[in-house]
Nucleic acid binder design. Structure first.
Length: 348
DNA sequence: AACACGGGGGT
DNA sequence: ACCCCAGTGTT
């Protein structure tokens, strides 16, 4: 039996029952695929169900407000996915008459849809012969064919894309694509793959050469930046100060608190820090540390301190991005995870 | 080609 | 501590 037939046969026996399987509606598949970008199935599943319930069709999605979309997205990360989804939903409602495209060539033009997602949607929705190449596929192919070319080099990308295209040539595109990804996720896992009970063990180059744990090869790792965020929790009566984050940094368009970023750990005793606080709020304030946390992202570690500002009087300079809103309204806004967690813990 | 973009889970 | 996850957009 060929590699592909073994994979498909394994899939039919071992596939998970997932809520987006079994539909050919390109809108629903798009929903699931965007959510699953760089996201584990188990983490994405509740978000998929939530989005489908709130926006049963692409027209429903197109009518949503960005704040509502981002609120539903809260906690999932890579928020540009949510923003791009709304943009694309509006685009489809307007230019496609609400009819979600199914072909690779149309799909790949959509914002937030790259070659992987276009291949996934087109093959799952209409069985178009487009090979998916995601993290799973890179891993399975690198191991089975013993490919040492880095998966994120220029030549590597092309090499794997060509190989994947060859392999799907005589297969049912929809089933085969899902099969190889499911195989990578459950059997040919990054760590502790199940080689002992693997249906393609005999043909696997990496297994033969005992290099399973060394493949695939991936270039470089980015340097992690350390940052120090000092947030000010200013409540007076039933209002709280909030600030929407702007483009050019993490958590774009999400709402957090007035913030002073420092080059190192800030303390109340530090004079320069006090000066900055005074400048930001226009007067001397008494600060109290509420909580300190370390927030780890892929590319930066953020040391977060929350300071309480007691007896704050609402007289905030209207020139800044900072606004005073009702606490109940504030809670409805989309927040970074670290802020959402803080609010849930400390603010009634 | 390199980097930015979140958060969580596995080892 | 490090790697990876049903990747894409920008520079």
């Amino acid at each position: 039996m060929s590699f592909q037939s073994e994979i498909v046969s394994w899939y039919l026996k071992n596939k998970r029952d997932l809520p987006w399987r079994g539909t050919t509606d390109p809108y629903v598949i798009w929903l699931s695929e965007i959510i699953l970008q760089q996201t584990r199935v188990e983490q994405g599943k509740p978000y998929f169900l939530k989005f489908l319930e709130n926006y049963p069709t692409v027209k429903d999605f197109a009518n949503a407000a960005e704040e509502q979309v981002l609120k539903l997205w809260q906690g999932l990360g890579y928020y540009s996915r949510g923003r791009n989804m709304l943009y694309t939903a509006k685009h489809i409602a307007e230019h496609y008459g609400g009819q979600f495209p199914k072909s690779y060539s149309e799909l790949v033009k959509l914002k937030g849809v790259g070659s992987y997602t276009a291949a996934a949607i087109s093959s799952f929705s209409s069985n178009e012969r487009q090979a998916v190449v995601d993290g799973n596929v890179y891993r399975v192919l690198a191991r089975y064919f013993g490919i040492e070319e880095p998966i994120n080099s220029n030549t590597g990308q092309k090499l794997f894309a060509d190989l994947a295209k060859e392999l799907i040539a005589d297969q049912e595109p929809s089933v085969y694509n899902q099969a190889i990804m499911e195989f990578g996720a459950l059997q040919c896992k990054p760590k502790s793959p199940l080689c002992i009970e693997c249906p393609v063990q005999l043909g696997c180059e990496a297994f033969k050469l005992k290099k399973v744990d060394q493949l695939p090869v991936k270039l470089k790792k980015v340097k992690i930046r350390k940052r120090w965020f000092n947030y000010f929790v200013a409540i007076s009566n039933d209002e709280i100060l909030t600030k929407q984050r702007m483009p050019g940094d993490v958590w774009q368009h999400l709402y957090d608190f007035p913030l002073i970023e420092t080059e190192g750990e800030a303390s109340i005793a530090n004079e320069e820090f006090q000066t900055q606080v005074t400048k930001l709020f226009g007067k001397q304030l008494e600060l109290k540390v509420l909580e300190s946390k370390k927030h780890v992202l892929t590319h930066q570690i953020i040391y977060v301190q929350f300071f309480a500002i007691d007896n704050y009087i609402v007289n905030f300079n209207k020139h800044t991005e900072i606004k005073s809103v009702k606490i109940n309204d504030f809670k409805q806004l989309p927040h970074p995870k670290i802020i959402g967690d803080f609010v849930e813990k400390h603010i009634d």
